[in-house]
């Protein structure tokens, strides 16, 4: 697997003042994997994604994405797509204008055409000329996903992509992500919902209080915790009595 590794985190730590958000995190993701990154709220998932995307620098350790050190900032021009936890939308723009703007930032020549194609891909073609402010939460989330896809990324970082969505909205995003993964896109999927991650991901890591507590397939986690129920597995790994791996 070593030669196939596309995301490599080695002993990364990040603190905000006196509060450690991530402590000595090490994990790797292979090319083409659908990797789940699980943890309760405040576990350090968003900080990890922000370090992976170069928005935050780790205080210690190193992070390599697609063969480039994140700290050299070169990877930003590379093929990564990010759906961040932030709201991140210009509500006064239409969906098409929003995507065209970002396509322009990525230097895509036919920005309008690219925007139309993406809107169709995420099922927003009919609302292309509506203001983003008039979109429902699910539509906004799909638009954010389209924005993450604007540069046709090889690696997708998704931070709670289905948060606050109804089952239909969750399903449509998950199906789209599955399709992308089948086309070879590596997906780094952060969530606190184990059932969602178990449905989609081939392998997963669990983080709690900034520390990696488990890594492997769902079966590995079952074996480790001696539990079958997804909720019990999660609670046993991240609950008050959980022991780090």
């Amino acid at each position: 697997m070593t030669e196939n590794i596309i995301i490599d985190i080695k002993d990364a730590s990040k603190s905000y003042g006196d509060r450690a958000a991530v402590r000595g995190l090490s994990l790797s993701v292979a090319k083409g994997e659908f990797f789940g990154f699980l943890g309760p709220n405040g576990a350090g998932k968003t900080t990890t994604i922000r370090m992976l995307t170069g928005i935050l620098s780790p205080d210690a350790g190193s992070i390599t994405v697609a063969g480039k050190l994140v700290s050299d900032k070169l990877h930003r021009a590379g093929k990564i797509g990010v759906l961040s936890e932030s709201k991140g939308l210009y509500e006064w723009m239409t969906g098409k204008e929003f995507l065209s703007f970002f396509a322009g930032l990525y230097g895509i020549a036919e920005a309008d055409e690219a925007a139309e194609k993406l809107l169709a891909e995420v099922g927003l073609k009919d609302r292309a000329d509506s203001l983003v402010g008039s979109y429902s939460r699910g539509m906004k989330q799909r638009l954010k996903l389209a924005r993450a896809l604007v540069n046709e990324p090889d690696i997708l970082f998704l931070d709670e992509p289905t948060l606050g969505l109804d089952p239909q909205g969750q399903d449509s995003i998950q199906k789209l992500l599955k399709r992308l993964n089948e086309k070879g896109v590596t997906v780094f999927y952060s969530s606190h919902l184990l059932h969602e991650v178990s449905r989609l991901c081939t392998r997963m890591a669990v983080i709690d209080k900034g520390v990696l507590v488990a890594e492997g397939t769902l079966d590995d986690l079952r074996r480790r915790t001696h539990k079958d129920d997804l909720r019990d597995i999660f609670l046993s790994l991240t609950g008050p009595d959980a022991e780090p791996e």
């Binding site: 922000r50 995307t53 170069g54 928005i55 930003r76 021009a77 990564i80 990010v82 961040s84 932030s86 709201k87 991140g88 939308l89 210009y90 970002f102 930032l105 990525y106 230097g107 924005r147």
Partner: peptide
């Protein structure tokens, strides 16, 4: 929106 701008090139 700053985060998405900074992630872009």
């Amino acid at each position: 929106t700053m985060e998405d701008l900074l992630i872009s090139p």
